[in-house]
Measured scan of single mutants.
Amino acid sequence: MDVFMKGLSKAKEGVVAAAEKTKQGVAEAAGKTKEGVLYVGSKTKEGVVHGVATVAEKTKEQVTNVGGAVVTGVTAVAQKTVEGAGSIAAATGFVKKDQLGKNEEGAPQEGILEDMPVDPDNEAYEMPSEEGYQDYEPEA
Score class of each variant (00 low, 15 high):
86 G>R: 11
50 H>A: 03
41 G>V: 04
94 F>W: 08
135 D>C: 08
88 I>G: 03
67 G>K: 10
10 K>R: 05
30 A>P: 02
108 P>T: 09
31 G>P: 01
88 I>A: 06
11 A>V: 15
47 G>N: 14
86 G>N: 07
100 L>Q: 06
134 Q>G: 07
81 T>S: 02
124 A>G: 09
91 A>I: 12
68 G>Y: 10
50 H>I: 13
47 G>S: 14
34 K>A: 09
62 Q>C: 10
21 K>W: 04
38 L>C: 06
20 E>Y: 14
43 K>A: 07
23 K>W: 15
125 Y>W: 09
29 A>K: 05
82 V>D: 04
117 P>G: 06
49 V>E: 07
48 V>N: 01
115 D>F: 06
52 V>N: 01
7 G>N: 06
12 K>Q: 03
125 Y>Q: 08
94 F>N: 06
105 E>S: 09
45 K>P: 00
123 E>K: 07
40 V>M: 08
59 T>K: 02
27 A>D: 03
100 L>P: 01
39 Y>M: 02
76 A>C: 14
51 G>E: 01
71 V>N: 02
36 G>H: 14
44 T>V: 08
120 P>E: 09
37 V>D: 00
27 A>I: 10
131 E>Y: 14
44 T>Q: 01
137 E>S: 09
50 H>V: 06
77 V>D: 02
99 Q>E: 15
79 Q>P: 02
132 G>I: 11
37 V>L: 12
107 A>D: 10
39 Y>E: 03
22 T>N: 01
50 H>N: 13
59 T>H: 02
90 A>D: 03
109 Q>S: 14
72 T>M: 12
25 G>I: 13
40 V>W: 00
138 P>V: 11
128 P>L: 08
139 E>I: 09
103 N>I: 03
12 K>G: 06
62 Q>K: 08
98 D>S: 08
2 D>W: 02
21 K>R: 08
43 K>Y: 14
125 Y>C: 14
134 Q>A: 06
80 K>R: 06
36 G>Q: 04
68 G>A: 00
131 E>L: 04
74 V>Q: 02
30 A>I: 14
124 A>P: 12
42 S>A: 12
126 E>M: 10
10 K>D: 04
138 P>C: 03
97 K>H: 08
58 K>Y: 13
3 V>R: 15
138 P>W: 12
108 P>D: 06
29 A>R: 05
14 G>R: 13
87 S>M: 11
124 A>R: 08
29 A>D: 01
20 E>F: 14
70 V>E: 05
100 L>I: 11
3 V>E: 01
2 D>Y: 09
128 P>A: 14
25 G>W: 02
39 Y>V: 09
3 V>N: 07
129 S>K: 05
49 V>D: 02
58 K>C: 02
124 A>D: 03
84 G>D: 07
74 V>W: 11
92 T>Q: 11
16 V>Q: 11
138 P>K: 08
103 N>Q: 09
70 V>D: 03
7 G>E: 05
82 V>T: 03
78 A>G: 06
56 A>D: 01
58 K>M: 14
115 D>Q: 12
60 K>N: 05
11 A>C: 00
75 T>V: 11
92 T>E: 08
60 K>H: 09
24 Q>D: 06
26 V>D: 00
61 E>Y: 07
125 Y>K: 09
131 E>N: 08
83 E>T: 11
63 V>I: 07
28 E>I: 08
108 P>Y: 03
105 E>W: 12
34 K>F: 12
3 V>W: 02
135 D>I: 14
15 V>G: 04
21 K>V: 11
93 G>P: 04
120 P>W: 10
89 A>D: 04
18 A>C: 13
6 K>Y: 06
94 F>P: 07
21 K>N: 02
15 V>K: 01
41 G>M: 08
91 A>L: 09
41 G>N: 01
126 E>K: 08
43 K>E: 01
127 M>V: 13
50 H>T: 12
91 A>C: 14
43 K>R: 11
101 G>K: 13
117 P>W: 03
11 A>F: 14
132 G>Y: 14
64 T>A: 10
40 V>F: 12
94 F>G: 10
47 G>T: 08
10 K>C: 05
82 V>E: 05
6 K>G: 01
42 S>P: 01
109 Q>I: 07
112 I>L: 13
98 D>V: 12
102 K>F: 00
115 D>A: 09
75 T>F: 06
17 A>L: 07
64 T>Y: 15
73 G>W: 11
15 V>R: 00
37 V>C: 08
91 A>H: 12
22 T>L: 07
46 E>D: 12
125 Y>E: 13
55 V>S: 01
129 S>D: 04
110 E>S: 02
84 G>V: 04
96 K>S: 14
37 V>T: 00
97 K>I: 15
19 A>I: 12
43 K>F: 01
2 D>L: 07
41 G>E: 01
98 D>F: 05
35 E>C: 15
108 P>M: 08
34 K>I: 06
2 D>S: 04
67 G>F: 13
4 F>G: 00
87 S>Y: 13
119 D>G: 14
105 E>A: 05
121 D>R: 08
15 V>S: 00
68 G>E: 04
132 G>P: 03
107 A>P: 07
17 A>R: 14
93 G>E: 07
23 K>N: 04
32 K>E: 00
113 L>P: 03
130 E>Q: 09
43 K>N: 00
24 Q>P: 15
122 N>M: 05
80 K>I: 08
91 A>S: 05
70 V>M: 10
128 P>F: 09
105 E>C: 05
25 G>D: 05
49 V>Y: 04
88 I>N: 00
29 A>M: 04
126 E>I: 04
81 T>W: 12
137 E>P: 14
82 V>I: 12
51 G>M: 03
109 Q>E: 14
84 G>A: 03
6 K>A: 08
127 M>Q: 05
9 S>D: 08
96 K>I: 12
122 N>E: 06
106 G>Y: 10
47 G>K: 09
51 G>Q: 02
93 G>M: 07
10 K>S: 02
33 T>A: 06
21 K>T: 04
70 V>F: 04
133 Y>S: 02
67 G>N: 01
30 A>Q: 02
77 V>P: 03
27 A>T: 09
39 Y>H: 06
35 E>L: 15
111 G>Q: 00
132 G>T: 05
13 E>R: 01
82 V>C: 13
32 K>P: 01
117 P>D: 07
116 M>D: 14
31 G>C: 10
67 G>L: 07
96 K>N: 11
55 V>P: 01
136 Y>A: 05
138 P>F: 09
53 A>R: 14
62 Q>V: 12
110 E>M: 09
63 V>L: 10
94 F>H: 05
88 I>H: 04
60 K>C: 10
117 P>C: 11
71 V>T: 00
110 E>R: 04
11 A>M: 14
3 V>S: 04
5 M>C: 00
64 T>P: 05
12 K>D: 00
100 L>C: 06
17 A>K: 13
126 E>V: 02
113 L>D: 10
125 Y>T: 11
1 M>I: 00
68 G>N: 15
80 K>H: 09
39 Y>C: 05
138 P>H: 05
91 A>Y: 13
96 K>M: 15
99 Q>L: 03
48 V>A: 05
82 V>H: 06
15 V>W: 10
47 G>A: 15
77 V>L: 12
9 S>A: 03
100 L>M: 09
13 E>F: 09
14 G>P: 01
